[in-house]
Amino acid sequence: MEDILRPIYQERASQLNTLGVLLVEKKQKSAQTTDFFDVILLVIVKEADQPVFIKHYSYDDKKAAMHVVTEEKLQQWLLLGTNRKIFEWIEHSKIIFDRNEFVAHLKTELREFPFNGRKIKMGLEFAKLIRRYVDGKAFFESKQYLDAYNHVVHSLHHLARLAIIEHGLHPELTVWQQVKQIEPEIYKLYEELVNSEETLEKRLELLFLASEFLIHSRVHIGTSHLLNVLSRKDYWMFNEIMTEKELLPYSVDLSVLIEYLIDKHLIEVVNLETKGQGVYHRCYRLNKKTL
């Protein structure tokens, strides 16, 4: 297999722009990891016109896919978790080509999972969790139970991923299998939501009560990164928070997260006068009394 594909990856490896080439083979028990292709060739490059370029090949009644990905796009995936398969590709791949040990260092970094990287990823998962939880509760209160159920399932998923990262691990495709081992309480919540014979309304009501505690117990670890950034200034206008480079990944979840933290007295509102009488600029600052 590798011999057949050699001309393809050798051409890429000979280019100075290429940082590494990895080969991932399909495993029967987890064929979805490779999108049901027999082989994935992952080519990491410094830069390219397209951040992701994919090409498909056929050989000997088999199929292969080559993914050419820029270093920037790869780092984005690893930070945001928007392409979870990439973790398994890097972890379980064979290194075909490695310029200046780029891939070896990448594998080591993922395995060791530096604490600062964990803080950022926990912050992003917590922000998504709060967004889903708050929206789900609003749907529940307006008796839109199916929409509430959809949001609650997603909120539990983010809670599970947050717990996994908290334990120093990367969330895999089989998140619930991981959580069952390390945070059985969260797994039970999910099981009860999905399998309980209670009415949907009752299931959701019980889950909101139970998950409130689990979320509250993770507020400080889930917001450590955000609050650390906000501590650098006396107060912030919202647009300043939105455009702060370190906080850009929080994206659309930031507004809901800020309001949640105001409710929990971790952030407080500062009103600054405008030219209009009785109208104020709404700014935000860290509530240092609660730290």
Rank of each mutant, 00 (worst) to 15 (best):
E166F: 04
R203N: 04
Q178K: 07
I182C: 09
G123H: 10
L78G: 15
F37K: 07
L193P: 07
V256T: 07
Q32P: 01
V69T: 09
E88Q: 14
H167Q: 09
T199P: 08
L124H: 08
R132T: 03
I241N: 14
L22K: 00
L23S: 03
Q28G: 13
M242D: 08
I40M: 08
K289C: 04
I96N: 11
Y133M: 00
Q32N: 05
V229D: 04
V279N: 01
L124I: 12
T174G: 03
K137I: 03
N100I: 05
L78E: 07
M1W: 07
L261N: 02
L227S: 04
T82H: 11
K128M: 01
Y250N: 14
L207D: 13
H170L: 12
Q28Y: 13
M237Y: 11
E191K: 14
W77R: 12
N100Y: 06
K137T: 00
L254D: 03
K121F: 04
I221T: 12
L200F: 13
R282C: 05
I95K: 00
D135F: 10
R12Q: 15
Q277I: 07
R131K: 13
E183Y: 09
V43P: 11
L227C: 08
F139A: 00
I96P: 09
D234Y: 10
G168P: 02
V24E: 00
I164M: 05
N287G: 01
V179H: 13
